[in-house]
């Protein structure tokens, strides 16, 4: 036996050893990566969290001149029933000089019959500056009658467009659609 070992030592196949080392190393690395991915991916949104990422809202329940605030997956959204005067001021102002120019109609979605309902405005409820929640009808609507963010003084108009203050963008219009004339579905 000892003789055989001696002779084996004399004829070590380095290439073969390298191959075995690299192959087994790669195998172990692949296994570690696969099991590691399981531990990384478990932190992503779970199925029930993802399933809760859309909500149907009956907009006919929102009183004129008022708004409701809904949370979808913890994110705030405003659904506002605008008065005739608020709609008028949102539609007639010249938008070209705004920090983030957008017409009022660009910020609305069509009803199932293809027409617009300018009375209902749906926007995100996070200030585009640092994510605070602006205050709206019933409190302080700011200089432009829309929303006012108390954190750093951003003023939004009745179309949710930024008019004054540090916020760089308009309140984003979320992904939503009218499933009937009075019900909208907001998705994240």
């Amino acid at each position: 036996m000892s003789d055989m070992t001696e002779s084996d030592h004399e004829t070590i196949d380095e290439d073969k050893r390298d191959f075995v080392h690299i192959a087994s190393g790669m195998m172990a690395l692949g296994g570690a990566g696969a099991i590691g991915w399981m531990f990384v991916d478990q932190m992503n949104p779970a199925a029930d969290t993802q399933a809760a990422s859309s909500l149907e809202v009956d907009v006919s329940k929102v009183a004129e001149g008022g708004e409701i605030r809904v949370l979808i997956g913890g994110k705030p959204f405003f659904v506002r029933h605008r008065t005739a005067a608020e709609i008028l001021s949102a539609q007639t102002t010249d938008v070209t000089k705004f920090p983030d120019p957008e017409t009022d109609e660009e910020r609305l979605r069509t009803l199932p019959d293809g027409s617009f309902n300018p009375a209902i405005l749906v926007t995100s409820g996070s200030c585009t500056h640092l994510g605070c929640v602006p205050v709206g009808p019933g409190n302080n609507t700011g200089d432009y009658g829309g929303w006012y963010c108390p954190c750093h003084g951003s003023h939004y108009d009745t179309s949710g467009r930024i008019r004054k203050g540090p916020a760089p963008k308009n309140l984003p219009v979320p992904d939503y659609e009218y499933v009937s004339a009075s019900v909208i579905r907001i998705s994240l």
Binding site: V40, M43, N44, P45, A46, T49, S53, I72, G73, G74, K75, L188
Partner: peptide, 17 residues
């Protein structure tokens, strides 16, 4: 950010982790 929070915003799953 979504991965850290485990959802679109801070929720129960964030508090637990």
């Amino acid at each position: 950010q979504t991965w850290l929070l485990g959802g679109p915003s801070i929720g129960n799953q964030t508090l637990q982790r």
